[in-house]
Structure formats: structure tokens, C-alpha cells
């Protein structure tokens, strides 16, 4: 039994069913359904504008769905109370694309921040926890640096340390490899795999980096124009005979087919006097 098959037997931590999301009148996600199993690394791929960042925002309850449902740890995100969301977020860690570090706090205080927000632990305990996580991400010795003094890779590793400081059971990465050189990117992938194995955490990675996706994924979901093109193991995606999947894998651009009515609507929507 391979890793993906083993995970398929586990309980789902995220269940997305028929999700539709819009910005204004524009449909971004259209009937998206999938689940993420406990201990699984699910990579969400797609080109620019495919809807992957919107999907991430919905899973984090930052956006509300137009229709369909998202359940995280069994909790329906559409009807979640602010108290439930607060508790839920203690079990979730997020590493945003730009790091989203607090510029006025040094590395250590950035990592401690969630502990101060969510726990009443002794200060010594919090500092040791933060420093342990900085060891894990190979940032030991840089505790007192300010974010402005960090390279891109260091900022990402600091953000990761902050994302895991509460020992989350569900971890989200938004474009972890973006802007990193291949060696640093491969190191980060290795770290993601180690975290999963040691912490038994479920991980959702949003990326457009193929090499990274193939290294870390148990399953890959490919989004295209807001729809799910394919969900499968790395081999299933690689061997897919779907032309659009292969275009994405081989980085071939597609001819854009213009619908004149839709195009004109986009150009003239909400203009006055037309």
C-alpha cells in the first residue's frame, strides 16, 4: 500500500463540497469538491488566475462561499462562530507567501506571537518553544534579527517557525518556494516532509512550482479556470492524458478562446450610459 492509499483510509480534516466563489459577478471557483486526509500533503496547483489562492482563503475562512460547503475538522466554515473560529485557528498554522512578519518585532518575538495571543504559558516556556521551532527551520542564532535584515528564504523559514509554534494539526503553505533559489527551495520541501512525519500534521500547499509539488505531494489537485481538472497521486497527474493538465505540466500556454459577449461584458460592466 503506497502513502496516498494509506492516507485515503484516514479521517478527512478538510471536506470541500460543491464550492462556488465569486468576486463581484465573476465566478472564481465553480463546483470545487475534494478532501484532505489526516497526515496527507495535498498540493493545489494551477496557473495564475486559476482560483488556487481564493480556494486557500476559503479554507482559512477569510472568504465566505457563495454556495457549497467547507468543513474543517468537521466544523462547517459557513456557519462557524467567531469563538469556534478562534479555537479552530489554534489548530491551524499558515505560512503566507510574503511571510507576513511583523516588521516591528524581531524573529523570536514574531514566532512567539501566536503563543502570547492564544495561551497563558510561562514566558520561559514560550521562549523555549519558539527557539526550538527556530532550530527546526535552521534559524537558530538569528533570534534577534529584525525582518528587514532577513533574506527571502530566512523570512519564509521564520514564517514557517511561527506557523508551527502551536503544533498545529493542519498547516497551510502559500507558495512556499516562490522567490527562492532551487537549493533553498529543495531544503524547504525537505523540511515540509520532516514536519509531516514528526508532527503527523496534515498539510495543504498552494504552489505553481512543479518540482516542489512532485517532491512533496501525496496527492495533487489541479485547478483550471476555477474548476478541478484532476485530483490524483503524483504519478496519476504526471500520466494524465488530459491536454490541459499536460499543458500545465509542460508550461505550454493555451490559445485563448474569446466569447465576444462575455468579453464585451467584462470591458463595459457597470459603465454608466452605455
Amino acid at each position: 500500500m503506497n502513502t496516498a492509499e494509506q492516507h485515503s483510509l484516514r479521517d478527512p480534516v478538510i471536506e470541500v463540497d460543491g464550492l462556488v466563489a465569486c468576486y463581484g459577478s465573476r465566478k472564481i471557483l465553480d463546483d470545487v469538491s475534494f478532501d484532505v486526509r489526516s497526515g496527507e500533503i495535498m498540493v493545489i496547483m494551477g496557473g495564475s488566475g486559476s482560483g488556487k489562492s481564493t480556494l486557500l482563503r476559503h479554507m482559512l475562512a477569510l472568504n465566505r462561499a457563495v454556495s457549497g460547503s467547507i468543513r474543517v475538522f468537521g466544523l462547517e466554515m459557513g456557519g462557524v462562530s467567531s469563538r469556534e473560529l478562534h479555537q479552530l485557528r489554534q489548530r491551524m498554522g499558515v505560512s503566507f507567501q510574503n511571510g507576513a512578519l511583523f516588521n516591528s518585532l524581531n524573529v523570536e518575538d514574531n514566532v512567539i506571537f501566536p503563543l502570547r495571543e492564544h495561551t497563558v504559558l510561562d514566558d520561559n516556556t514560550m521562549r523555549i518553544m519558539a527557539r526550538m521551532k527556530l532550530e527546526v527551520v535552521n534559524m537558530a542564532g538569528f533570534e534577534k534579527l529584525m525582518p528587514a535584515q532577513l533574506s527571502g528564504g530566512m523570512a519564509k523559514r521564520t514564517a514557517l517557525a511561527r506557523a508551527i509554534v502551536m503544533d498545529p494539526k493542519l498547516l497551510f503553505f502559500d507558495e512556499p518556494s516562490a522567490g527562492l533559489d532551487p537549493v533553498v527551495s529543495a531544503d524547504l520541501d525537505e523540511l515540509i516532509l520532516r514536519l509531516r512525519d514528526a508532527m503527523d500534521v496534515s498539510i495543504v500547499v498552494v504552489t505553481h512550482e512543479l518540482d516542489s509539488a512532485f517532491r512533496i505531494a501525496d496527492r495533487i489537485l489541479v485547478l483550471d479556470k476555477g474548476k478541478v481538472l484532476i485530483i490524483g497521486t503524483v504519478d496519476e497527474v504526471k500520466n494524465s492524458d488530459n491536454e490541459r493538465v499536460q499543458n500545465l505540466l509542460n508550461r505550454r500556454s493555451e490559445d485563448v478562446i474569446v466569447d465576444p459577449d462575455e468579453y464585451m461584458q467584462r470591458l463595459t460592466d457597470e459603465l454608466i450610459g452605455l
Binding site: 495561551t119 504559558l121 520561559n124 516556556t125 523555549i128 518553544m129 526550538m132 521551532k133 509554534v165 502551536m166
Partner: peptide, 8 residues
């Protein structure tokens, strides 16, 4: 991690 921190 909080338990491990207590051990540390």
C-alpha cells in the same frame, strides 16, 4: 512542544 519545553 510546550511539554518538551518544560523538559528543556
Amino acid at each position: 512542544s510546550s511539554g518538551i519545553a518544560s523538559l528543556v
